[in-house]
């Protein structure tokens, strides 16, 4: 498999020039009855296009929160997130939604799919929303993810692994700049999970997007090119 390594080399070169994603002093706290609870206390991070990173940490360390902020799913309190030159830390909702549609793909641990749409419709959903449906790319994704026979099924009829594959397909169908995953294999058994990881990494390399994954499995983290650990809301310097 030569292409990936060439790719990653090229990616490294690009990193040195301008990172796709830059996070500066990111802060986020949640309101609780006992007062504001600081979850992120100044996180600095950058990610180049094509780079893959694993984000690790104890539960409650804020890794999911960080992912959400990067994915324009939520607002930051302070700090900067710059994605491809655009500051996205505190965007109005319309802009955030547009960003999510066009530039970012997200895969959660569960409930990714829209229950009332078929697999094929799910796959095309984000791309159609963004107005960037590419039938050929769509077909290729379907094939690569092994979903041809499941095209007219509904999510409730799929196994966990199948559902995650559809989720990934949907996220990548729009050719995002950045693919985010929050414990995507957390609900799957080891074998299925590994298979899903393989597919994901292959497709990430093929599309050349950046990949940021939250996980607490060191084994999975090892498969990605970088690892960062969050401890109590800030990156641990390793």
């Amino acid at each position: 498999m030569n292409a990936p390594s060439v790719r990653s080399e090229a990616a490294t070169v690009e990193t040195l020039s301008a990172p796709l994603l830059r996070i500066v002093n990111l802060r986020k706290s949640y309101a609780t009855p006992q007062g504001p609870l600081a979850v992120l206390r100044g996180v600095d991070l950058s990610l180049a296009a094509g780079e893959t990173m694993a984000l690790m940490g104890e539960s409650g360390s804020g890794k999911s929160t960080l992912l959400h902020l990067v994915g324009a799913l939520d607002d930051a309190d302070a700090g900067e997130i710059i994605l491809d030159g655009v500051s996205i830390a505190r965007l109005p909702e319309n802009a955030r939604a547009a960003l999510r549609r066009e530039a970012i793909g997200v895969v959660f641990q569960q409930f990714n799919l829209i229950a009332s749409l078929t697999v094929a419709e799910n796959l095309a959903f984000q791309a159609q929303l963004a107005g960037r449906l590419d039938p050929q790319w769509q077909a290729r994704l379907t094939h690569r993810l092994g979903l041809e026979n499941l095209a007219s099924r509904y999510p409730e009829q799929l196994s966990g692994g199948q559902q995650q594959r559809v989720a990934i397909g949907r996220a990548l169908a729009v050719r995002p700049k950045l693919l985010l995953a929050d414990e995507p294999t957390g609900n799957l058994d080891e074998a299925t999970g590994d298979a899903v990881m393989d597919l994901t990494l292959d497709l990430v390399t093929e599309t050349g997007c950046a990949f940021l994954m939250v996980t607490h499995s060191a084994r999975l983290a090892a498969r990605l090119s970088r690892r960062e650990t969050l401890v109590a809301g800030a990156l641990a310097r390793s």
Partner: peptide, 16 residues
Amino acid sequence: LAHIAPVWAVGVTRRR
């Protein structure tokens, strides 16, 4: 909520 959340995540505003 379980039905709407995935659509929201994909990039549709809450208002919409």
